[in-house]
Nucleic acid binder design. Sequence first.
DNA 1: TGCTTTCGTAACAATTTTGTAATCAATTTG
DNA 2: CAAATTGATTACAAAATTGTTACGAAAGCA
Lengths: 227, 227
Amino acid sequence: MEKKNAEIVIIEDEEDILELLEYHLAKEGYDVTGFLSTENVERFMEEESPALLIVDRNLPGVEGSEFVASMREIGYDTPVIFLTAKDKDSELEEGFKRGGDDYLTKPFNTKELLLRIEALLRRSGVKQSEKLRYRDIILDNQARELYVDKKKVDLTNLEYKLLYTFVKNSHQTLQRDFLRDEVWGDDSDHFHDKTINVAINRLKKKIDPSGEKGYFVPIWGVGYKLG
Amino acid sequence: MEKKNAEIVIIEDEEDILELLEYHLAKEGYDVTGFLSTENVERFMEEESPALLIVDRNLPGVEGSEFVASMREIGYDTPVIFLTAKDKDSELEEGFKRGGDDYLTKPFNTKELLLRIEALLRRSGVKQSEKLRYRDIILDNQARELYVDKKKVDLTNLEYKLLYTFVKNSHQTLQRDFLRDEVWGDDSDHFHDKTINVAINRLKKKIDPSGEKGYFVPIWGVGYKLG
DNA sequence: TGCTTTCGTAACAATTTTGTAATCAATTTG
DNA sequence: CAAATTGATTACAAAATTGTTACGAAAGCA
């Protein structure tokens, strides 16, 4: 239930339905962004390139399937699931013709929607990036990016490797020797005593400037552990 | 009608439904083969590799979804649409979990089935959209052309391959080694340190002369990523 | 052949990262 | 409690990495 994190966009003008959908999909582990109209969606797609669109047909302003057709025209191939209150043949046909991949009629079964999402993502070949988590820390190892409390934080390579080592071994106390081997790979004798301290200090400042979260707990005379 | 002639296999034990389906699909131009049970289907698939399976869940002998699951296990990725008389949540879930792509409950609308077939063939079709995009960059891989902000930009072969590699892996950090393999294909030891830097530098100047867009973000000690 | 384009190499500049050292603070030990 | 040991913090400079520019060899083209 935790390793889905594909990015999904929902366009739905009825706020309570939108909220409900966001809740259910987020619970499944998807990374959901909701919109009340098609406005701003194109810009968002440029920036984020989501894996799937869930689009209400009946939107204010631009009609849902029109929006999808226009996205298709400018080259987007993102999978689309349409939602609709209506159930007319002509509507259905229009939805598919304009580039929809699936179609659900309201009121729909949430379980079914989730299954259809999964099937469509599988068929369209979405690669799930593996992410490591610890508390509010998310390490995306493919993008080599760190998010703390949903906010992106830039790290240097050394800092990244260091944090990665801790998160990967989050249940253990990491001894100084182990960290030296794992992060620095330095077998020379010229490894300064305080190098690790300084590195951890810098890392702490970046991921928790106020110092209130206490990610790193020093184990006196041994090393550190996450806490 | 048109010339669709994709090969479709239908497995359905109720003969009149099977005939009806065969009739409608053939009329649309598909090349249809019907089976009354899962028997012999595997051998047929080996010989013909159809583009789509339409499978009744409720078959004599082997259950439809079981058959699909076993096909998936031995490596077949053919798209599947399940048909069923039942409408239970658990059935639905089982169907998708075992590798179904779509699910229709009898009695179904023929028009809808045809539309869903088309959508599924489109999505699973080998011919993917030949356009890759990232922000305001569009790579038309068929024409081997680049558009930045709707304006055409000429690239050299090397530059194109480089940019293509980045856009294709737009949410990953690309390590220098990976770029060397992917773009230069050079496994020699004589690969100069700065070759990548200079190539990226040239590419940057072409697609973003003013340097304000910051397409390429160096990841210190690792490589680059799009940003 | 002669012209043009492409692209690797080299040199140097600019930038970022990271180790070191010095000092201060905290913890343990006797 | 005092001494000793270890960790935290800070500032600085060396080291490592990337950016930029120019040159010329190689490849493509007329």
